[in-house]
Amino acid sequence: MDFKVVDEIIDKYKDPSGRILGILEDIQDTYNYLPKEVMVYVSKKLNVPLSSLYSVATFYSFFNLEPVGEHLISVCMGTACHVKGAPELLESLKHLLGIDVNEVTDDGKFVLTTTDRKFSLSSARCFGCCSMAPVIRIDDRIYGYVKIKDLPAILKEYGWKEK
């Protein structure tokens, strides 16, 4: 693995405040998850125990230790979305994507990926778009007022095919 990118990321963060989170976030932006080799490398380079980086990576829900699919779908499970039917949306999405309902990762972070690795499905806590509840986010785009019946059309924008 080429660590030049990682070096560049590390060099960006000179000030100790926010350094570790910033570096890990940028690494995840680059690789779409936190590869183990990179974590080991960062640990050596910063002289921070790997155990403590791993602790941070597993504590914050933003970080993924496994690669996620090409498109990441997050269903908002915030209060406003909850009372407006987010659980049903999630249920529908699982079925549309053909993701096994029982397949829940045991690190408590809920990310499910389709077998073709095209989509990952996860839940999130409030995107701050509560006025548009229920809300889902696909990659960087937020969809408001989502209805179950709109889901197929939305997914098709991302290359999903109806079975």
Partner: peptide, 10 residues
């Protein structure tokens, strides 16, 4: 001022 981003923890 500098800005620090959180990483998902209430």
């Amino acid at each position: 001022i500098k800005i620090v981003k959180g990483a998902g923890a209430f």
